[in-house]
Simulated scan of single mutants.
Amino acid sequence: MSLSPFFEELKSAYDAELDDLMTDSAGHDVLAKRLQAKRGQLSQLLPMIECNPEMVAVAFHGGMRFGSREVMRDLTAQDPDDLPPWATLLSSVSLEPWAEDLAEIVLQDPNGDQFLVVTACLEYLRGRSAMYAESADAQSAGDRDDGNSDEFGIDTEIDLDGDLDEAGADWLSEQGFDRKDRFSGDY
């Protein structure tokens, strides 16, 4: 998947923002509580949607469902000036009832339309990353497919560990080392 430089950078910032909200200083999971607080402060956070959209977009975390991964992949490859209006995405993105209420608040802002499209892209990318990580974990545990990966376009038949082992063995061979059985661990 090809991301535009805009989404490449913003995805990292969005992931970092969610990671920051996830736990408190004692390591307790406080994500739900902190997201609820962000949602309650949405009106006050609106001035940030242009300069730091990732800090406001987290309020929508978990509130969007995607019907077309092709549409979302196309959007994440675009620059912000080329993004379509939010209304055109409504056939591909559905909102949870609480997220619909938030969207009504955001759409009152002159930049709210574009912000919702950007937020949908960030949520799609976050969900895709999470699905990919789950798929890789399942593969390494021997579970090939949980039936949910197709939603994000993940090929769960790829042997990630085997591909990495093979690439590592190829590289070591190129460096002059004897090629050994990938499961022996001896090089």
Results as ranks from 00 to 15, higher is better:
R39Q: 04
S25G: 05
D146P: 02
E54P: 00
Y187P: 01
Y187T: 06
Q78E: 07
T23F: 10
C121S: 07
D79T: 14
L90T: 14
D29V: 09
E96Q: 09
V118W: 00
G63S: 08
Y132N: 10
G176W: 10
D82I: 11
G63F: 00
A130I: 15
E174A: 13
R182W: 08
L21N: 03
M55I: 12
S91P: 03
A169P: 06
A120G: 02
R126A: 14
E174S: 14
M131Q: 10
P110I: 07
A138C: 06
L45Y: 04
A99C: 08
D163T: 15
E96R: 13
V106S: 00
P47I: 15
M22Y: 13
Y132P: 02
K11Q: 13
A103R: 03
T156Y: 05
E134D: 10
A169G: 08
S129G: 13
W98N: 03
V56E: 03
L95M: 12
R144E: 09
N111L: 06
F152L: 07
P85M: 12
D74R: 13
L125D: 01
A32Q: 10
D19T: 12
Q41A: 14
G62M: 05
D146Q: 06
L90E: 11
A59Q: 01
D181P: 03
Q114H: 06
